[in-house]
Amino acid sequence: MSTVEFSNVSKAFPGGAGKAVDDFNLKIASGEFVSFLGPSGCGKTTSLRMLAGLERNTSGRILIDGVVVAEPESRLFVPPEKRHVGMVFQSYAVWPHMSVFENVAYPLKISKRPKAEIAQRVTEMLAVVELSGLEQRMPSQLSGGQQQRVALARGLVMQPKVLLLDEPLSNLDAKLREKMRVDIRAIQQKLGLTVVYVTHDQVEANTMSDRIVIMRAGHIVQTGTPDEIRRAPVDAFVADFIR
């Protein structure tokens, strides 16, 4: 399991007004579940994508497991395919032309694991996300919740250093959302994963996280456990948002 560190990370989009993320500093411990919480447009997704390598920070540095993966000052950038992080997208991004099995097996196939090992690992992973028996289904035959679980299994099958989730529950109905909250947290605890979870929903952040990072307009406003933040919000914005 792995640590993550953001140190003075900023991101300005070309042509964008101001910085989308400004002087972001955060250390995440191994096995920790950290949520980025804040209103839409505050820079949560951008921060997460910089950690994944899908977006380049314009200054500062990002470390995974103590190794620098992005530091523009020294022209250092590890592309996403070499970072060993798993990610679950808001749109799930389950590949429509591949079966459930092929979707989950893909990362293993890329790293050229033997067939038998792939079959075994995929079966295990599908059991973890409770999709056993649906191996041969195509994504078009799955419900939103099931696609979500395929995406989760695919993100986990490589035993990534960190699992990143960007508003993974926002397209599900209320009931399913509640169940997935519990399930994701349970899987994280069971596998001892380091998780970064992006959401604008304070209930999700409160119920799942070890620690919450509250953001506003590209800045971190407060960091703390759900309890700490509820008891001592730094300002009215946080108090209002966490309520």
Binding site: E81, A93, W95, A151
Partner: peptide, 15 residues
């Protein structure tokens, strides 16, 4: 095309 299809593949380690 939804760009996350390709991004998911990159994060799976694909060149």
């Amino acid at each position: 095309m939804d760009s996350s299809f390709e991004e998911a593949a990159r994060l799976s380690g694909a060149s």
